[in-house]
């Protein structure tokens, strides 16, 4: 399968650099502002874009992303509306990969078949569903692969050697390595630990490896970019959006400006990483 994700990682390999994967929550702080941010991400330096779809009970997320989800739900976002935002984005940009990230229940209630049809139709490339381990592949993973969508799997430090093949079997697009055992927004891992983990994964898969959890600054993104195929930044970006809210929690121009400024800085960090390492 050569979709947008595969083409993007192939192009990055060609350029000899790692990619920047961004996560923002659809509907945060309101639907139009979240789209205004989404629309600017690729130009600011995002190579792959994760669009968050909120859930009332995000059990693997820290306070920053929990708050973003609550703002988004209050703003009236639904899975249907998130897909509509993906469609708008795709009309402007036919090359940047879009991956929907969320929890299973909203997809289950939307209907798996209907979701996969609509996802394909709006131009989504794949999905990351936090609470669907390989043990539950029959639910969504295998139908998604059959439909031609990528199912990006999370691999954790607790995923041992014996379990890795099972986790990687139905993974496609890229592998998302969670560099720490913890919730989103926690402190990051050391470069040495990340290097070891990436080396271990490379022995098991030819898929690109993105590393996330705990990356907040351009320097940290650059460190990850030296060893992995992409660095994923979520909570730091969501925090930047949150910092732009007015005292009543309403959106201001700063939400978009902060977010895109951070993405520009992160993008520079990621792009410079291997040149610095080489020189």
């Amino acid at each position: 399968m050569t979709g947008r994700i595969e083409r993007r990682f192939a192009a990055l390999a060609e350029e000899g650099r790692a990619g920047l994967v961004t996560f923002t929550m659809m509907g945060d702080p309101d639907i139009e502002t979240s789209y205004a941010i989404l629309e600017g991400l690729a130009e600011a330096g995002a190579d792959v874009i994760e669009i968050g779809s909120p859930f009332t009970d995000p059990m693997a997320d820290g306070p920053v992303i929990q708050r973003a989800g609550q703002r988004a739900l209050r703003a009236g976002i639904t899975l249907e509306k998130s897909l509509a935002l993906a469609r708008r984005f795709r009309a402007q940009d036919d090359t940047t990969p879009l991956v929907l990230m969320g929890y299973y229940n909203p997809i289950y209630i939307y209907g798996v078949e209907r979701f996969l049809n609509d996802a394909l139709e709006v131009g989504l490339d794949g999905m990351i569903v936090v609470d669907l381990p390989p043990e539950e592949d029959a639910e969504l993973c295998r139908p998604a692969l059959d439909a031609g969508l990528s199912f990006v799997r999370l691999v954790a430090p607790t995923t041992d050697e014996a379990r890795l093949p099972a986790v990687l079997t139905n993974t496609s697009g890229f592998v998302y390595y969670i560099s720490i055992t913890g919730i989103t927004g926690a402190a990051g891992a050391t470069t040495a630990a990340t290097q070891m983990a990436v080396d271990r994964l490379r022995r098991h898969t030819a898929l690109p490896i993105a590393v996330g959890f705990g990356i907040k600054t351009p320097d940290q993104a650059a460190e990850v970019a030296r060893v992995a195929d992409a660095a994923v930044v979520g909570s730091a970006l969501v925090s930047a959006i949150e910092d732009g809210l007015d005292v009543d929690g309403g959106a201001t121009a700063a939400c978009r400006d902060n977010a895109l400024a951070l993405v520009r800085a992160l993008g520079k960090g990621v792009r410079a990483a291997r040149q610095e390492a080489a020189s």
Binding site: P133, E135, A156, V167
Partner: peptide, 14 residues
């Protein structure tokens, strides 16, 4: 029933 949890927890649940 089932096991709908994050990968980090899965090895421990097993």
């Amino acid at each position: 029933g089932g096991r709908y949890v994050a990968e980090t927890l899965m090895p421990l649940i097993l």
